[in-house]
Amino acid sequence: MSHQMEALALLNAKRRWRVWEIALWLVAIAAIFLLPSQLLILTEIVILALFAVSLDLILGYAGIVSLGHTAFFGLGAYAAGILARDYVTEPVTGLLFAGLVSGLFGLATSFLVLRGSDLTRLMTTFGVAMLLAEVGNQAAWLTGGADGLSGMSMGPILGLFEFDLWGRTGYVYCLVVLIALTYIARRIVNSPFGLSLMAIKRNPRRAAMLGISPKRRIVVVYAISAAYAGMAGALLAQTTNFVSPDVLAFHRSADVLLVLVIGGAGYLYGGIFGAIIFTLLRDWLSVATPQYWMFWIGLILVAIVMIGRERLTGWPALLAARLKGKTEEAAK
């Protein structure tokens, strides 16, 4: 094989759709018919997954840590909620509006994450989310303040599909949005732009010496990530017809980070797998031990970080390698 052909084969292999990716989406679609009574929790998972994919774009690809990512999620939820309450009840319009508002806010605040260490980034992102939460709380005339934003009723999607009582339309709607946005994110990370982000994460100084302006690239991906988070927030507002001030609460920023730690950052699907595991675990633990479920979540988090995800999820491979080693030893 010529080097040229080898190179093309290598590059194409990276962006090829894997079997498990397709299987995941097929299972998610099949759930519409197979799990009709679970659609509300599945919707919750899809929304959290989109939120985590959004965080993965900056954390997993560009190496930007954030402890305030819910600022964009909450802003998107309020933007979609206010639009639906006062102006337009069509959900896709609201979704795009929320993405735009959060994206612009991301663009405006991106300068805060451009320089400095991880610690300063944690603090500035945390601060922005806190500021926004207080603004949401004080501007009761617009947001409903501590009571939350209510009184909206969503119209049919694109004027065609009415939301139903069982959450079926809501789930399909959220799933379609997640699939579309994951597809777009996949294109982005497999592009030359995506490669430059990964280079900036690994070695920003060296990246600059190849002519890359790390700042401009980070501004762009931060805005995209913010728009994604805003759309996730919009989905929550639209499927629940309510925006609680809790959308800007600190625990949401922490949860989404936890989701990414569970699922793994830097391959887009970590947010999706993490959201499934996190939500099911929380649901199960909160029923099994209503008083102590946070304890178990905490313990699991510590275990993941200390033991390492590779060893937790990769144990079949490790076991196989060890067995193989043993048989080889025995053969000698």
Binding site: L8, L11, N12, K14, R15, R187, I188, N190, S191, P192, F193, G194, L195, S196, A199, L210, G211, I212, R217, V220
Partner: peptide, 21 residues
Amino acid sequence: MLAIGERKGHGRRFWRPLAAD
């Protein structure tokens, strides 16, 4: 690919796959 793509200014392309270059 990164070094050459950046010289050509392709680093701002976010839709075309790397393999298409």
